[in-house]
Design a protein around this nucleic acid. Structure first.
Lengths: 174, 174, 174, 174
DNA sequence: TTTT
DNA sequence: TTTT
C-alpha cells in the first residue's frame, strides 16, 4: 500500500558491467550505473552542449540475477523503479546521503540492446519482474557477498564459498 | 534533444511551504520538500510498517512562481520532472552530491489539493508548464535572492531590494 | 514477463459512480469513466478553448472492490494501468473495437479527493494494488453480475442472489 | 494548461513502416502501428501464453518527419504521448470511435533500434520533440496528402504535386 | 458524465 | 563510466 506515487522511468546505457552481490540468505542485489544524456544549443554561443546524467540503480531478486547474466557495459536498458535516499556515515562519522532508483517487485527492468551490439552475453529483449527484497538495502552494503568476476551465474552457495572481495571493504559505498 | 529517457513522477504532500528565490535576471526558482510514503506488513511480526521518502524538488520559471503563490505546507501535488545530481563542497572542502527532481519546461506541476483542505492561499487544480531555466542550477544556490516570508509574490526587483536572508548563508544547501 | 512497455498514467475525475460487477467465481470488476481535460488559447481568435477526454477504465480484484466502496461521481483519482483493445460484435454482427485502460495486479489506483469534497463515502488517500484477474475481460462483459444500486459492498454471493439488471443486456458494452 | 494528467508510455516494435502524410499547410502527420506483448503461464495448463497488443500512434510535426525518415518495419521505439479518442462515421453513417496515442509537442519519440538491426534507413537513437499540430486531427483524415512510397522525404509542396493515393479513400480510417 |  |  502507498500514500502517494513514487515512480522513476529511465532509458540509458550502462557505464559498466552490473555489480552483483548476494545477501546471506541468497538474494541477489545488483548495482547499475546508468547514463542518460540530453543535448541542446547554448543560447549565447549557439554551440551544441551535451550533459550526461549518471543514475545509481539497485535491483533486487530475480531481476538482479538476470542483470548479472545478460547486461554488459554499454547495454541499453529500460528501468522502472522508485526513488530512495539512504543515509550512511563517512570515515569522519559524518552523515551522508545517496539517492538511488530501486527496482523491486513493483518495478521493471528490460533490455533494449539488440543481440549484435557488442556484448558477448547480451540476449535481446529479456525482461522480468523483480522479487521483493527480503530486507531493506543496507547502508554500507557490506553484508552482500560479491560475485567475483565471471562467476556471477553461480548459485549463491558457491558465491558464499568464494572468497570475500577485499576491494569491497572501503568506506564510501559508491 | 535527448538520448535516453529521464523521467520522475511523484504524488505526495509538501513538508513545508515552498522556498521561492529569484536569479539575478529575475527568474523564479522554487524548492519543495515532498513526502511519499508506503506501508506494508512486516513479514516476521505481521505488524504494519510505514516508510516515508522525502524528495527534493526544484521548479524553474513560471511553475516556480505558481508554487510560491498557491502551494502550502501539506498540499498534495503531482510532479513530473527529471533526476539531476549536483555536486557541491562542504565546509571541509569535500565533494558532496545531492539528487533532485528538476521540473523545467518539459516537466509539470499540478495541484491536487481541494480548496477546502487547510491552506489559506491554496487554489485547486492549478497547473502550468515550467519555463526553461536561463542557466543551470548553481551548486550552493547562494546567488538566489530569497523571497522573505510573506513577500513571495513581489516582483524580482522588490526581492533584490529586500534584504538578504542570513539563514541562507549556511554551508549545506539542504 | 513482457516484451515492451505498455503503461498509462491518468489523473482525472469520475463522470459517474463506479460500475461494479462480479464474475461467476466472485471476482470484482469495476468500470470507471474518467475525464481529463486540457485548455489552451486558440491561435486565431485568442479565445480560451477546453477539450475534455473521457477514458474507460477497468479495475480487477481488490482494487475494484475498493473503487466500489470509496469512489463516487466527481472523485479525483490516479490511475496506472495498461492499454488494451478488445473486439466485440454489434447488433449487425460487425466487428467493433473498444480501447480501455486496464488496472490489474501490475497497476495502481489511488484516491486523490479529500474527505470533504462531496462524496458521502469518500475516504482520503486510500490505495491498493489490484489482484490479477482470474481470466481475461470478456468482450460483451455479460457474464458479470451487476452490483445493483447501493448494495455494491455486498459479498459476491449476495450479488448473485440479487436480481440481474436487465438494462445490462444490451448489445453495446459501453 | 491542463486539469488532470493524460500520459501514455510505450516501448514496442513497428508492425509496418510509418504512414506519413501532410496537411494542406505542410505539417507532417505520421501514423504508426506499434506492438507490445506480454507472456505468462496459463494457470490451468501451465502452458506459456503470449498476447500482443497493437497501438495506434499519431505523430505530429517534426517528430512525424523523423519517423518517416528513420523508422522502419520492426524498429523498436519509445513513445510518450496522450490518449485521445476520435469519432468518425462508417459507411452506414454510424458513429465509430478510435482511440490513439497522440505525440505532440508535449510528447516524445525515441528510436531504440541499433543501426545494425535490419532496417535500411534506420539510424540509431535519434530523438526529437514534436511540434504542436496546427489543428486537431480530422476524423476521416482524408485531407492529408499521402507521401507516396519512397518519396516521404520530399518537401510538402512536392507531396501536394504528387498524385493522391486512391487507396486512402476508404471509409474506415484504420 | 467529471472538474476549475 | 555509457551512448550517438
Amino acid at each position: 500500500m502507498a500514500r502517494g506515487v513514487n515512480k522513476v522511468i529511465l532509458i540509458g546505457n550502462l557505464g559498466d558491467a552490473p555489480d552483483v552481490r548476494y545477501t546471506p540468505n541468497g538474494n541477489a542485489v545488483a548495482n547499475l550505473s546508468l547514463a542518460t544524456s540530453e543535448s541542446w544549443k547554448d543560447k549565447n554561443t549557439g554551440q551544441p552542449v551535451e550533459r550526461t546524467e549518471w543514475h545509481r540503480i539497485v535491483l533486487f531478486g530475480k531481476v538482479a540475477e538476470i542483470a548479472g547474466q545478460y547486461l554488459h557495459k554499454g547495454a541499453k536498458v529500460y528501468i522502472e523503479g522508485k526513488l530512495q535516499t539512504r543515509k550512511w556515515q563517512d570515515q569522519q562519522g559524518q552523515d551522508r546521503y545517496t539517492t538511488e532508483v530501486v527496482v523491486d517487485i513493483n518495478g521493471q527492468m528490460q533490455m533494449l540492446s539488440g543481440q549484435n551490439d557488442g556484448g558477448a552475453q547480451s540476449r535481446a529483449d529479456q525482461q522480468a519482474s523483480a522479487y521483493q527484497p527480503q530486507a531493506g538495502r543496507s547502508d554500507g552494503a557490506k553484508q552482500y557477498q560479491q560475485a567475483s568476476g565471471s562467476s556471477q551465474k553461480q548459485p549463491p552457495a558457491a558465491q558464499v564459498a568464494g572468497g570475500f572481495d577485499d576491494s569491497f571493504d572501503d568506506d564510501i559505498p559508491f
